[in-house]
Write a protein that binds this DNA or RNA. Structure first.
Length: 584
RNA sequence: CGGGGCGUAGCGCAGCUUGGUUAGCGCGCCAGUUUUGGGAACUGGAGGCCGAGAGUUCAAAUCUCUCCGCCCCGACCA
């Protein structure tokens, strides 16, 4: 490709819309443009990267027995209604001229399950692994980071169907390998973390995280045993309760006018939030629950649900709270609380002389103590794990990282197949629901994740496997015959050798070409400049700016050598991650 | 949905508090000349419904109201 023919509108200034590094660079380098909130054009360079990512993903999926298909982007309402997901508010809904309901597909469990239930009857047709790469639509409450969280995005979603759990485990492990290798080949270091399976439901679930400060997810990582989990999921190891040595002080009712939040109470009473106990009132079906966590902690609702043994909970409404506590919202506490099941985070057990709501508007108790002023019959792990908490595996301290989720794999089991009556006949003559797995990879998000962790002040630095071009040949002065013929010769030789190469022969000053080349981030740069008169060009990599002067005759082979070196680093990494196997 | 901010040329911004002639600056764009190893210099140009609507006023980019859009924080997030 010749740069004079290529549409890549680069910007010198940073558009005001961007906050994240990758977002700024993708805009500046002319890879993407915003069309609406969370909706983007992929311009030629960005689209090229996307296609390269997709190609790698397809190779790895196919290698593990996946079969690509393409399901509709528009999904009739009935399918989502079958599993009760039609009500989700992330759905983009639309109607046809006859007033029938549809939505833009946001994930395709129902659609693929429908395919399989219609045409797969026997265990002999299993296992089955179907995947697609498709544009999804989700009406995200808050799109951000450009293509990191868009309302329209490209995803690879794969679904496996098996006859039993052992086979599902095998299918899952294959997808684990396919995903790990895909990320490695795209030059992304990922950390696999235990995850909550969320609204989709299911059993095991892991996420592939790219560690980045700008990541949206909090991850807890154990430095000693390697356990890693999303904060939504992370369990907290049990440590012996250490009551402090302080003396019991007497319970006291104090006025705290208007102080409803932890912040207000702490600043009013001049006490650390660690001396407070938050009382959160939930409704679990007909039962009202008071969940207690230390003032500076956050409740983890999935954990609360598990501890209570229920499928669903919701924060109680103001009416319920007032009826229960006899006070306005913001003053609930466990002292003298009747009519609610009280459950506390384990950490609360060690607390003494703490502050709680008094179940009286504008009042709190100080110096409350368990046993004397209130009884707690149930303790459980209820809070969101944070830095310094005990690792659930080895009990050492957990550390915290931020991560960008680029992949998520689940063992769904029979949730969808049972719900949609998708069954096959097993060899024992019995009809059984398929055991399913689902696996999602954020392809368009990777377009951002890669430069998010690979850039410098001059621009992006693409891994050779997904770079918009593997090599850019910069012709500095197109009026100079020697430079011109050197550049064109190398461009043609590299093309002949199968290299994806860009020739920058634009009528621009050298500075512009250097800046654009760095911004776009092709891993190998060849410069045809002054030295062309002496039969030499410069060859250098995007990362190490030190140039090598090479005879024109040898330049192509030098570039090929560099290129294959870059590829072998990536394939070594891929080999490594696939041999490590599954983290459990 | 709650809190905050922003909408003025393709991009980045000033002007708005205190209304007043022709709405400005930098970058980019077009033409010409000179330049040519890290976003050139000079000269000359093109380009605006000041987000939309309503109101106040002799007069609105500027004041008031309504709406729309976008960004950030939070809530939410397969």
């Amino acid at each position: 490709m010749r740069a004079s023919q290529l549409f890549f509108p680069t910007l010198r200034e940073v558009p005001a819309e961007a906050e994240m590094i990758s977002h700024k660079l993708l805009l500046r380098a002319g890879f993407i443009r915003r069309v609406g909130a969370g909706i983007y054009d992929y311009l030629p360079l960005g689209y090229k990267v996307l296609k390269k990512i997709e190609k790698i993903a397809r190779e790895e999926m196919d290698a593990q027995g996946g079969q690509e298909l393409l399901m509709p982007a528009i999904v009739p309402a009935e399918l989502y209604q079958e599993t009760g997901r039609w009500g989700l508010d992330v759905l983009f809904r639309l109607k046809d001229r006859n007033d029938r309901d549809y939505s833009i597909g946001f994930t395709h469990e129902e659609v693929v399950t429908d395919i399989v239930r219609r045409d797969v009857r026997s265990y002999r047709e299993l296992p089955l692994n179907l995947y697609q790469i498709q544009t999804k639509g989700r009406d995200e409450p808050r799109p951000r980071g450009g293509v990191v969280r868009g309302r329209e995005f490209i995803m690879l979603d794969s679904y496996t169907f098996d006859r039993n759990w052992e086979d599902l485990d095998r299918a899952y492990d294959k997808m684990y390998v396919a995903f790990s290798r895909t990320f490695a080949r795209c030059g992304l270091d990922t950390l696999v973390v235990e995850a909550d399976s969320g609204a989709i439901g299911g059993k095991d679930s892991q996420e592939y995280m790219v560690i980045a400060d700008s990541g949206e997810d909090m991850i807890l990582v154990c430095g000693s045993c390697g356990y890693a989990a999303n904060s939504e999921k992370c369990e907290i190891g049990e440590r012996p309760i250490k009551k402090s040595e302080e003396e019991l002080q007497s319970l006291e009712l104090v006025d705290t006018p208007g102080a409803r939040t932890i912040e207000q109470v702490t600043s009013f009473l001049k006490k650390s939030p660690k001396k407070l106990v938050k009382t959160l009132i939930y409704k679990a079906g007909d039962e009202v629950v008071a969940a207690l966590v230390r003032g500076d902690r956050e409740i983890n609702e999935p954990k609360l649900m598990r501890a209570l043994g229920v499928k669903n909970i919701e924060m109680a409404d103001a009416d319920t709270i007032e009826k229960l506590t006899g006070a306005e919202v913001g003053f609930a506490g466990p002292v003298g609380l009747n009519g609610a099941r009280i459950i506390a985070d384990r950490e609360v057990e060690a607390m003494m002389n703490f502050v709680v709501g008094a179940n009286k508007t504008d009042a709190h108790y100080i110096n409350a103590n368990i046993g004397r002023d209130l009884e707690i019959s149930e303790y459980a792990d209820l809070r969101v794990a944070s830095k310094g908490d005990a690792c659930p595996k080895c009990n050492r301290d957990l550390g915290v990282e931020r991560g960008m989720e680029v992949g998520h794999i689940f063992k769904l089991g029979d949730i969808y197949s049972e719900g949609m009556d998708a069954k096959f006949l097993d060899d024992d003559g019995r009809e059984k629901p398929f055991l399913m797995g689902c696996y999602g990879m954020g392809v368009s998000r990777m377009l951002a994740a890669i430069p998010e962790v690979n850039s410098d002040k001059d621009g992006m630095i693409w891994p050779v496997s997904v770079a918009p071009f593997e090599v850019v040949v910069i012709l500095l002065n197109s009026d100079d015959d020697a430079q011109c013929s050197a550049a064109i010769r190398l461009y043609e030789e590299l093309q002949q050798a199968g290299v994806d190469v860009l020739l920058d022969e634009r009528d621009e000053r050298p500075g512009v070409k250097f800046k654009d080349a760095d911004l776009i981030g092709c891993p190998i740069q060849v410069v045809a400049g002054r030295l062309a008169g002496e039969g030499k060009v410069e060859v250098r990599t995007r990362t190490e700016k030190d140039k090598q002067e090479v005879d024109i005759d040898n330049a192509t082979s030098r570039v090929l050598e560099l290129r294959s070196g870059l590829y072998s680093i990536l394939s070594d990494r891929a080999a490594m991650v696939s041999s490590i196997g599954k983290v459990d």
